[in-house]
Structure formats: C-alpha cells, structure tokens
C-alpha cells in the first residue's frame, strides 16, 4: 500500500486535486447545504474514481480484496469437491464474448477445480459461439497448466448442437442420437472416455454457465425436473439472469454463482484449496474485478445513507419551524 502511494503519487494527487473544489464548498457552505444542492457531476466524478483507483491499484500491485464466500458459492464448491478422481463432469458453456467479463472467470475456475480433482471433463455448448469459449478454456488452462491431461481420456469437447432446449431433452436419455462425433469430428465410439456413456444421467455432476436462453433455466426444466434423483446441476449466471434462477434453489439447483461476485467467491475457494502460494494472475480475474465493484457498491450505499440523513434532518427542521 505504502509503495503504491509512493510510486503512483500522481494518480492520488490528481484524484485529490479534482475533489478540492468539493471540499472547499463543504467547508464554505457547511455539510448540509452542500449535500442538499449537490451537483450530480460530483457524484459522477466520485464514482469515476471509485472504479478507476481500485482497477489501477489491483492492476499495479496484483493484490486483490478479500472475499467471504457465501453459502451458495460454498455449496457450489462442495458439489465438485465431493466428486472423486475419474468421476464425470459435464461442462455446458452457454455464453458469448459479450458476457465473458462476468462468466469467463467462472469457467476458468470450474475447469481449474475439475482439473485439480482429476475429474473427467465433457465440454458441450448450446450457443453457437460456445465452442470458442470452450476452446479458450482448454487452450489457456488445460494445455498450459495441466499438460498431462489427455484429450479423449481426461477431457473431450463435444461441441455445439443447435436446437436449444430440444438438445437437452434428447441427451438426458440418449446422448448418441445427437452426438455422433466430438467437435473434432472423431466418432464417439473411438473416444475412450465416451465408452459406456449413453446419456447425461451418467454424469456425476452437470455444470452450466449461461448468459441467457438457452441456459440454466432450461437445464433445470428439461434435465433436472424429469430426473431429480439422477441429474445434479450447479450453475453460473450473469447478474441479470441470476435472480430468475433463485426459485430453483436449493432443490433443483444446489449451487449457483451469480455475477462477478459469485465468480470471485468461488475463485477464492478454489485458490484457497488448490492455488498454492503464488497463484497465476489468470486465476484471480474475478477477484480483480471485484475491487471496483466493492468500492462502487460502498459508494452507492454511502450515497443512499447520505440522502436519507439529509432527508430526515430536513424534515425535523421543517417540523420545528
């Protein structure tokens, strides 16, 4: 922290300088009158710094803020933690580059966790651009950090199938009707880890990361609802999608990561268990993104409190006069 202040003094100086007129106004006119007539551009400016400074601080120092995992993130972590080496995990990536900011870190953390546990990974996608997201995860994590994992034995990319929830309806009972080959065109029969796999009820866990339709909601409706005892599902969703999934917790959806916050919580759990001392920065993406979130949230909370303090003081003054 001290190093940061010393080395990056100019940023802090710029921030303080830009806020000087506001402070002057506070001292000149008093706190209450200033707050009452506050030009909303000051709010914009403070918001700007509240987002920029944490990004800069985290970007320079590589430090992240601590994260207390919520019960839902812990439940998600536990679902994977419970599996044993060689168990089967289906990873369905239903998102696109637009939502990668929120969901990319979740995908990274899920793959790392599963790879550390030596699970067998089955990737698939219901979004046409999903295979690209799968390729990113394989290229950046499995190939780089887990080079001993063998394609076809430890992980397989089944690729994209069109048909939205129709695909789910079919593969819950019959995977091979739709998937005759993997994404590389290898026949399913020639892939060792596909031996004996008839349908996705044989998966020990399904992980769905989704940014909309089709997504976790469809997986709940068409996979978990008809086979509640045989298919277990956990999910990761964007902030906009997550509220729509709450009604399914915990019976049909034992774990859910919501937005960048959920991703950061899960990331911190995975890193605590498997990160070692010097975690690669790519496994800290969500935690880095949480920095500006935290400060900005605290700012909005502070603004709401300030607004109500003004309101009540005013009302008392009006009542008195």
């Amino acid at each position: 922290m001290a190093d940061f202040v010393l080395n990056q003094w100019w940023l802090l100086a710029a921030m303080i300088l830009s806020l000087v007129p506001l402070v002057l106004q506070f001292t000149r006119d008093g706190v209450m009158p200033t707050l009452e007539t506050l030009d909303r551009r000051w709010i914009f400016l403070i918001m700007f710094w509240a987002v920029l400074v944490p990004i800069y601080y985290i970007g320079v120092t590589g430090e992240t803020f601590p994260e207390t995992p919520s019960a839902l993130a812990e439940a998600t972590f536990e679902e994977i933690e419970r599996l044993e080496e060689g168990d089967r995990l289906l990873l369905a990536f239903d998102f696109d580059p637009a939502s990668e900011g929120e969901l990319g870190p979740m995908a990274t953390a899920f793959v790392k966790h599963a790879a550390e546990k030596r699970l067998r990974l089955y990737f698939m996608a219901l979004w046409p651009i999903g295979p690209q997201m799968i390729a990113d995860a394989i290229n950046e994590i499995i190939l780089v950090d887990y080079p001993d994992m063998v394609y076809g034995e430890d992980y397989v990319n089944l690729g994209f199938k069109s048909g939205n929830e129709g695909v789910i309806k079919v593969i819950v009972t019959n995977l091979r009707e739709l998937y005759t080959t993997d994404a590389r065109g290898t026949a399913i029969g020639d892939i060792p880890m596909m031996e004996g796999i008839e349908n996705i009820q044989q998966m020990d866990l399904v992980v769905n990361i989704s940014a909309g339709y089709p997504g976790t909601k469809e997986w709940v409706q068409y996979a978990v609802t008809p086979y509640p005892d045989r298919i277990r599902l956990v999910g990761g969703a964007t902030g906009v999608q997550a509220p729509l999934l709450y009604p399914y917790i915990p019976e049909q959806l034992p774990g859910l990561l919501g937005a960048i916050k959920g991703a950061a919580e899960y990331e911190s759990l995975v890193n605590a268990a498997y990160g070692g001392d010097d975690t690669d920065p790519k496994y800290l993406e969500a935690l880095r993104r949480m920095g500006p979130q935290l400060v900005a949230h605290l700012l909005i909370i502070g603004l709401i409190i300030a607004a109500n303090v003004i309101f009540f003081l005013n009302r008392r003054r009006v009542a008195r006069s």
Binding site: L83, D87, E198, Q201, Q202
Partner: peptide
C-alpha cells in the same frame, strides 16, 4: 461414489 450406476446407465 459411483452414483451413476442407475437403471439407465446399466442398460
């Protein structure tokens, strides 16, 4: 821990 040994799996 092989929960997937269920009816359909073993068909």
């Amino acid at each position: 821990m092989r929960r997937w040994i269920t009816a359909s799996a073993c068909l």
